[in-house]
């Protein structure tokens, strides 16, 4: 696109947006609808311990998070459709022994940290998607250093088609279990604390493992294309 046209377009978009921002209620003033309506209810009746963000993501607005997980899944599948003309990936140039040693050394620790982020999302900032990005990044790092073939060997071979859909599948399972326990799809049974905890953990793990495999496969699909 013509750079002047682009600049004019962006300006034309930005000016009304900035004007509208200025006309909005001032950030942080407590009597605005954004603080007095739905959000206050979340803060007042949300869980007393743990991460309120996770509670909103998985519980009050679980359906949206399900949709977002499906977006990531379908993104992978769309890339796989596009990248069907396969060429074997290039082997990596022989890695530096120092880099190779360090990457081997830190890989298990980063993996541990990734799972920590996935599971600690229930209590502190973190959660499935963030952990998935860490684990996926780890696979990509290994691919950069040792070549895509090695990165592929880190993924579960035969279980891969099942596990890459782990995010949506975990949500569907939680939806059905919650539906049986509470009478509403994606309901979380607060009267059964153990089941409640297990469902939240399961969904976070599903998002985390599924997301990590999706990021890894995106990388491999791009290397092969």
């Amino acid at each position: 696109m013509n750079p002047r046209l682009a600049a004019a377009f962006v300006t034309g978009l930005a000016v009304p947006m900035l004007a509208a921002m200025a006309a909005l209620p001032r950030h942080g003033s407590p009597d605005q609808p954004i603080h007095t309506h739905v959000a206050r209810e979340y803060i007042e009746s949300g869980p007393e311990t743990g991460n309120l963000v996770t509670a909103i993501l998985l519980d009050y607005r679980g359906m949206d998070t399900f949709g977002e997980v499906v977006v990531i899944f379908v993104g992978l599948v769309a890339v796989l459709v596009l990248a069907r003309h396969r060429e074997p990936a290039l082997p990596a140039a022989s890695p530096s022994p120092i880099v190779a040693f360090i990457v081997r050394l830190v890989t298990p620790f980063i993996a541990l940290f990734g799972f920590h982020v996935i599971l600690s999302g229930l209590e502190v900032p973190g959660g499935g998607l963030q952990g998935a990005a860490i684990l996926g990044g780890l696979v990509i790092l290994n691919g950069f250093v040792f070549g895509p073939q090695h990165a592929r060997s880190l993924l579960p071979g035969r279980l891969l088609p099942w596990l890459q859909g782990a995010g949506p599948l975990a949500f569907l399972a939680a939806g059905i279990v919650g539906g049986i326990a509470t009478g509403f799809a994606l309901g979380y049974p607060t009267h059964l604390p153990l089941l409640h905890e297990a469902m939240l953990m399961g969904v976070e793990l599903g998002i985390g493992i599924g997301g990590a495999l999706i990021f890894s496969r995106l990388y491999l699909a791009l290397e092969d294309a």
């Binding site: 309506h37 739905v38 519980d59 009050y60 607005r61 679980g62 359906m63 509403f184 799809a185």
Partner: peptide, 10 residues
Amino acid sequence: VGGWPPPYGI
């Protein structure tokens, strides 16, 4: 969804 009455839930 989830048993939360609107507008709090979806």
